[in-house]
Design a protein around this nucleic acid. Structure first.
Length: 420
RNA sequence: GCGGUUAUGGUGAAGUGGUUAACACACCGGAUUGUGGUUCCGGCAUGCGUGGGUUCGAUCCCCACUAACCGCCCCA
């Protein structure tokens, strides 16, 4: 039996790779525009990093990590997300000591989660993410959201919905937590098993439950918005004001609860048109305690991550095409043994002169060689055979209009460069 | 991790318990000793996801496994 690709992974074939290049180029351009610098961190890290960073109670850590021991008996994990690594690097290289703050950074790379694959969910997937470390200014919250929107719009996505919430600071969260427990505890038996477990661990997540979505207590549950203390409320108000003044539409959703433990204050998602159940294109939020949690000084931070796989699906649903028109300047058709010997030499000359050029390698007949030239979208075909070699001239055919010229070998590159 | 659907060539797909597994597209060749995108003709699955079972005989029936898709959970 032939070996198959691991479950939940996929190959990007040549016909699709150019889309990825375009998307990655767009991401880099937008980051340059917003003055975010690339940082590259390893694809695996100490398992501890994610346990402490992402949070022990999260689904990611509890059941989705690709963990292994290396030959030195170290516990390592293929990264399930990017923020923990970036914060680790920020602390490890003492980037908090750099004069330039906040450190505005981005990454594009593979992430790994052991999940049941379906459209828009893979075991290896690719995230583009940005992190701004060191600033607690509400305008950076707005900036990071706008960066993501700019990126999507640049690629032609229109059907986007920004959803916002605030989880408040630790004091606000604690107050809300108590209120939630008090609200649900008397009737928790009417809820699903998961919710019963959530009650003590993370009652916030009950609000996210799809099973008990219609339970009357859901509608009357205490909203985090009502439990924000003054500082938290004030901060959130400033973020919203900036977005308003920039003309950014958003929807407030007090039940927007992100799955990672490190979030506080502003959280957000961008939803898009997508196939099936998955519509979250991008998610992120503020994580003010994370740097100190991972051994650095008390430092605020905020970031987002988005999936390129889901972006591609959304582009598809919206009918946005990233198709380009790859073409070849020139294709050499060789007829006969002598010409076949000459072809690679001539081809090399064209290439060295900067022309995108190719020839047949399948011993095809003339007709077949022309077909290949057509598939490669060659603008010109250079035909050489015995007759041409005798007079040191090639027949050059313009594939668009079918016209032909005789061109001396010596002037071939000049001729083609002028025509292209 | 749970539930449902599916699995035939490079692709999209018909199909039957019994000798040669439709059709279309793509590809290769010929009509046109040396010219593509049109047309006509020809070629192209020792094989029907993998392993086992039932049977005189299985691509078709049964079981297991694997994978894909959809839903749940959760997320990007």
């Amino acid at each position: 039996m032939t070996i198959q690709i691991p479950r939940g992974t996929y190959d990007v074939l040549p016909e699709d790779a150019f889309k990825w290049q375009k998307i990655e180029a767009a991401a880099r351009e937008v980051c340059a525009l917003f003055n975010y610098k690339e940082m590259r961190t390893p694809i695996f890290e100490s398992t501890d990093l994610f346990q402490r960073g992402v949070g022990d109670t999260t689904d990611i850590v509890q059941k989705e990590m690709y963990s292994f021991k290396d030959r030195g008996d170290r516990d390592l994990t293929l990264r399930p997300e990017g923020t923990a690594s970036f914060v680790r690097a920020y602390v490890e290289h003492k980037l908090f000591g750099q004069p330039s703050q906040p450190q505005k950074l981005y990454y594009i790379g593979p992430m790994f989660r052991y999940e049941r694959p379906q459209a828009g969910r893979n075991r290896q997937f690719t995230q583009f993410g940005c992190e701004a470390l060191g600033s607690a200014d509400p305008s950076i919250d707005a900036e990071i959201i706008v960066l993501a929107l700019t990126f999507y719009r640049k690629l032609g996505l229109k059907n986007l919905k920004l959803v916002l919430n605030s989880l408040g600071d630790p004091e606000s969260r604690a107050a809300h937590r108590e209120a939630l427990i008090a609200h649900f505890k008397p009737s928790i038996g009417e809820f699903c098993e998961d919710c019963q477990k959530r009650l003590e661990k993370n009652p916030l997540r009950i609000l996210d439950c799809k099973t008990d979505h219609n339970h009357p207590l859901m509608a009357t549950a205490p909203s985090i918005i009502d439990y924000l203390n003054e500082a938290s409320r004030d901060y959130f108000a400033k973020v919203k004001t900036i977005l308003n003044e920039m003309g950014i539409d958003y929807e407030l959703d007090p039940t927007l609860v992100r799955g990672l433990d490190y979030y506080n204050h502003t959280t957000f998602e961008i939803m898009g048109a997508s196939q099936g159940a998955i519509t979250t294109l991008m998610g992120g939020g503020r994580y003010n305690g994370l740097v100190s949690e991972l051994g650095g000084p008390e430092t605020p931070g905020i970031g987002f991550a988005l999936s390129i796989e889901r972006l591609l699906l959304a582009l598809d649903v919206e009918g946005v095409s990233l198709d380009s028109d790859p073409s070849l300047d020139c294709f050499i058709v060789a007829i006969g043994d002598k010409a076949e010997q000459k072809a690679p030499v001539l081809l090399n000359q064209l290439r060295q002169a900067g022309l995108q050029a190719d020839k047949d390698y399948m011993v095809r007949k003339v007709k077949g060689q022309f077909k290949q030239a057509d598939r490669d979208r060659a603008k010109f075909v250079v035909v050489i055979g015995d007759e041409e070699l005798n007079v040191q001239k090639a027949v050059v055919k313009n594939m668009a209009d079918g016209s032909q010229d005789e061109v001396a070998f010596a002037t071939l590159t000049d001729y083609l460069k002028k025509k292209i």
